[in-house]
Amino acid sequence: IRCIGVSNRDFVEGMSGGTWVDVVLEHGGCVTVMAQDKPTVDIELVTTTVSNMAEVRSYCYEASISDMASDSRCPTQGEAYLDKQSDTQYVCKRTLVDRGWGNGCGLFGKGSLVTCAKFTCSKKMTGKSIQPENLEYRIMLSVHGSQHSGMIVNDTGYETDENRAKVEVTPNSPRAEATLGGFGSLGLDCEPRTGLDFSDLYYLTMNNKHWLVHKEWFHDIPLPWHAGADTGTPHWNNKEALVEFKDAHAKRQTVVVLGSQEGAVHTALAGALEAEMDGAKGKLFSGHLKCRLKMDKLRLKGVSYSLCTAAFTFTKVPAETLHGTVTVEVQYAGTDGPCKIPVQMAVDMQTLTPVGRLITANPVITESTENSKMMLELDPPFGDSYIVIGVGDKKITHHWHRSGSTIGKAFEATVRGAKRMAVLGDTAWDFGSVGGVFNSLGKGIHQIFGAAFKSLFGGMSWFSQILIGTLLVWLGLNTKNGSISLTCLALGGVMIFLSTAVSA
């Protein structure tokens, strides 16, 4: 259960009878995928790494000078000259100064003066180019299975845990398959586009800190620079940016070097996208990844198990997540596992009318040892309800109150669905055939309105939902006002479609 501690969480529900669903994975976010007769899966884009970055340009932001020398000439005696002028490691300046009897010249006039100092770069920052084909995306998957609280967001041991898996995709191999043991396998067909235009970005490294910066900004930095990788004795261009020549006297000129420019660069980098280094690879934390999940090989585990009949206890007080759902960790005293956990939410304890829904599909106890633990997640209705676990006299209950409203949740879900469709863009549509167009249209309606429909009408039977949709269509056909007619027709059509397409 990876997503319960992530604030940016998206719930995606598969269409009834569908074998695939489109998701948008982004750094700092987590996606929970639910479908009829399929286990619930949490998917998170953990890291995006980039390798084989080529150094484009380096800037010196802290330097020192040494070996200063000057040469001067009297008027009419030609130009002052130093051998160091031809050495690229030196920074030199030529000027004219007033000369006369007082400073060793027989004539009054302008004399030539040249001053040089050896330039040494102490600290530099480097910009590297990123090729999209060198990106690698690491995705962690977790099935809502027989897990306890100690396994949440624990990325170790996934090789031997059938509840978890790690997959890596690249532009050259965008397809992967996550093996989930008894739950089958989940196929991923990803489109490795981060949403960032790397043709316009460089990877900047300064003092063990890293950013993504725009090329134009990078090339306009007014500091000494050299092109390409460091060859040991780089040729620094624009050395004068960190060196200041003071007022010249008759035979000498003082040279000083400016202080470190790291603070000024940090100020200019305010708002830039931060990154990290992992050995020789860069780690990015921006952008998104679009994936199509193929769920035809994914299956529920323990459908044929019998119900657990022994007593359950709450190991922890049920807690609310950031998303309005409830996490419950229970301990089973029996030894008759594997068995299914009898769990439901009810409005009252007399009729036990089921409300809400299970995020953890078909929760089971897989071990036959005593005191096995299991964590599950529920989506309670707004208002008061009861969490009921167990059967008969051994069942345990917990009162729950959820604040908020169904309308607010439906609106929030619609906005999130619209954002998801905007990110998917043209990849969500198939114009290759008439059937493809209608299929894409259905998927689009489901992406945007599916979660809201589930919130508003999830407790009704599909037949009642179709009746309401048919009534809206009838009202649309018999209303003389054009805008009201079109609105009723659209709402009725969407409702009829979703009542037959969205899983219960």
Rank of each mutant, 00 (worst) to 15 (best):
Y61R: 01
C190Q: 09
E276F: 11
K290I: 06
V213N: 10
R73E: 10
L489T: 14
A178R: 02
A490R: 02
E320K: 14
N134C: 09
S503I: 02
E274I: 06
A452D: 10
V355Q: 01
G181L: 08
N8S: 06
E244L: 07
P39N: 10
Y158D: 10
T49P: 00
S51H: 14
S112Q: 04
G187Q: 10
K281I: 14
S304E: 00
H323R: 14
S66E: 07
F218G: 01
I466Q: 09
K38N: 04
V256P: 00
S142K: 01
S149G: 12
M277F: 13
V50R: 00
S7N: 14
V255W: 03
F497H: 13
T500Y: 13
H398W: 13
F312H: 05
W474N: 04
F285H: 12
T313P: 00
D230A: 05
G157V: 15
T313R: 05
K38E: 11
T194W: 01
Q147F: 10
L498N: 10
I484D: 10
R299G: 11
E177G: 12
S86W: 03
K84T: 04
L180T: 04
K110G: 04
L498D: 12
A310G: 15
L135F: 13
R402P: 09
L82N: 05
Y386M: 13
L141N: 09
C92K: 10
F218H: 09
G181Y: 03
E412D: 06
G228F: 15
T366P: 15
E168P: 00
E244R: 11
F198L: 15
H398Q: 15
N52W: 10
G476Y: 07
S86G: 13
D42T: 02
V347G: 06
G493P: 09
S129R: 02
V56W: 08
F314T: 04
T360H: 06
V31L: 09
A35I: 03
E274V: 09
S385A: 13
D98R: 03
I484Y: 08
F449S: 10
R9L: 02
E13L: 04
K297Y: 09
S464M: 10
S385V: 12
G334T: 06
R164A: 01
T126I: 15
E216N: 07
V167F: 14
S16W: 04
R2F: 08
V213E: 08
A272L: 06
A178N: 06
C30Y: 12
E191R: 05
A248H: 08
E162T: 06
G334N: 06
T231M: 04
S66D: 04
L284Y: 05
F183S: 10
G232I: 02
I496A: 06
Y81S: 10
D278T: 12
F285Q: 06
T32M: 08
P39K: 10
P363K: 07
V437T: 01
L141Q: 11
S86F: 02
V256C: 03
F108P: 03
D296W: 08
V213M: 13
H148Y: 15
D336S: 13
L471D: 11
S185P: 00
F11V: 09
P222G: 05
P75T: 03
P174C: 10
L82Q: 02
H288V: 05
K251A: 06
I407K: 10
N371I: 03
L467E: 06
L196D: 00
D348R: 00
V255G: 03
G442Q: 08
G18M: 06
V12C: 07
P234W: 11
L242I: 07
E276K: 09
R175V: 09
Y386K: 08
S64W: 03
V169M: 12
A229L: 14
V423L: 15
D430L: 00
V328E: 10
P224W: 11
I139P: 00
S64Y: 11
T309R: 15
A428L: 00
S455M: 13
Y158L: 15
W236A: 01
C190I: 06
T313L: 00
I43P: 00
G442D: 05
K215V: 02
M53C: 11
A410C: 05
K480Y: 13
E159Y: 01
A117H: 04
K395S: 11
V91M: 11
G356I: 04
